[in-house]
Amino acid sequence: MADNVPRQEELSTLFGSIGIGTIVSMLLVLLFAFLLSRLLTLLLSKLSERTGWQRIKLKMLIPLLKFGIYGAAFYYIMANVLEISGQQLLILGGLFGAALGFGLKDLFSDFIGGIVITFEKPYQVGDKIRIGKYYGEVMDIGFRATKLVTPDDNLVSAPNGLIFTESVASANSGSSEMMVVIDLYIACDADASLAMKILREAVISSKYVYISEKRQVTLLQKAFPFYTRLRAKAYVNDLRYEFEFESDVHTRALEEFRKREIRVPELHYLEAFPEMKDFNFPELTSNKP
């Protein structure tokens, strides 16, 4: 009880010293930090978009800069505007802890998540990621949330705290190329080796493909009871062309299949096996693994 008296005095001194001038100074510092951060983010984003496939290397600096600027602003406010002593900082820490207990836990978790994402880099701005139920290109990593643009052009804000509870998959992890898995299906009795040759040539001649010593094209074939699946694993030169690449290979390969009379599976066998009509064929309805 005796210890509480000086603490209350410390707090009274601290809050008592905060006048209008101090508040204005704090707001000005924060405004400056905000404007500087926005300006640098904008400049870096614009510049990185001009650099083509190397844009991700520049964009990864954005969250670092943000945390740096706001960290410096916070330090400046504490040390120069409020002139907080070590003891006062401890007391404020205690107050902050209590606030967490009263409902700011999620916000704090998101903030810590933002720091972890910035420094540990499970993903970066520009990556294509799957986090929780969301999939898309990371546009921004903020203090509270990561903004993704989905393939349908929806802007999704995924709380940064998700990285503590959900697994995160980054399709490219900092590179601009990413692997795309392309499946095609042919009838069981179709010429699979010719179809494989066509699929390979469709992939390697695509305007979106990227091939290097480490980024090779892989072709796989698997027979199922009523059809054969041909799978190509190849890298698109820029992750933004993921779906265009898949569509380009599909379109040209299927056109060639038709020319070369390679039959694709048909569902007429359902008539032979009427009991299978209600069976769900996931392989035939989805092109994703």
Partner: peptide, 9 residues
Amino acid sequence: YLEKLRLVW
């Protein structure tokens, strides 16, 4: 320009 787009390697 083409190297930037990775159209030539």
